[in-house]
Every structure is written in structure tokens, then in C-alpha cells.
Amino acid sequence: MAQHQVNYLKDGGLPVALTTIDKVVNWGRSNSLWALTYGLACCGIEMMASGASRYDFDRFGTIFRASPRQAELMVVAGTLTKKHAEFIRRLYDQMAEPKWVISMGSCANTGGMFNTYATVQGVDRVIPVDLYLPGCAPRPETLQYGVLMLQQKIRRESASRAQKPKRLM
């Protein structure tokens, strides 16, 4: 039986890395952004395409979860109606800290073309938003770029519990 030899000290394969706690925590957080599936309209289709094999979110550590308890990222993809507003708030409150929100597409950003009585004019009236993606609908590349931008944002933040609470009001 062949003996596999690993020279830990030579090949940079030393299983010890020196860093700060902040960096380790933020490395973990930014590279395992589990997203709550929140497809509300046609943007949801683009979000699903981003998760599927061609664009493949799994390689960034973004896995869609169907439960708010297991998610730290909410991608609000689509039109938020006034009837649904209370539920998005409830699901957001159910997500464990730390949590981030991406508002995907015109409808989620501002209400978009639905300048009517039944549409919330921007999800930021209900939940705090970290990143707004323009487009109607944004292409999967945009969402991918947005997630990578969010990863950079997370890595810039302090990992301690003293991080500023996000408050809408």
C-alpha cells in the first residue's frame, strides 16, 4: 500500500494559520451565507437560476434554505404586496442575528412599476436593507455580484456582538 507523504512545513500545507478572531468569524460568515428563499415574483425565477447549476451559488457557500431559523441572508426577490408585508417582517424577525437583506429588483427597491394601492413602495419601509440590486429583473450575474459585494461588506464589519443593530426606526 502506497504511503502518501505530506510535507506540511514545506508545501504551505501547514494546518495552522495565524489570524485574528474577527477575520476567522467573518471568513465563516461571509462564505456560508445561507439565504432564505424569498421569491415573490419574476425576480424569484432569476434567483432560482442563480442557485442552479449554470451560475451555481453553492460555490460561494450560498445555499437556499426554506426556514428563517437556518438563514442569515434574505434575498427579497419580487413585488412585496401590502398584504404580505407583515409576513416578511415576521420572517425577518425570526432569522437569527447576524442577518442581512438584499433587495432584488425594482419592485423590491421602490415598488417599481406598481405605483398602486396594493404594493409596498420599497421593502425598506418594512425591513432594513443592506444591498439594493437594480434591474427588472436583475440577471443572475447581478445577484452573484451582489452576494460577492455583501461578502466584502461582511468582511469589513466587526465580528463582535457589539455590531450596530440594524434598525428601521
Partner: peptide, 28 residues
């Protein structure tokens, strides 16, 4: 078409209460 006063503040009133109207502000 863009809703009466009840519709304009529906989600704010329901989620945060009427006292939050001043903080969140009217819809654009």
C-alpha cells in the same frame, strides 16, 4: 389608484403602529 390614506399607511400601521408614521415617513 395609489390608495387612500388607509392604504398608504397600511403596512406601517399594522407592523409598527400608528406612532411610527412620523419616523418612517410617507411613501414616495
Amino acid at each position: 389608484l395609489q390608495g387612500d390614506e388607509f392604504a398608504a399607511w397600511y403596512e406601517v400601521d399594522k407592523i409598527f403602529g400608528k406612532e411610527a408614521r412620523e419616523i418612517i415617513g410617507p411613501e414616495n
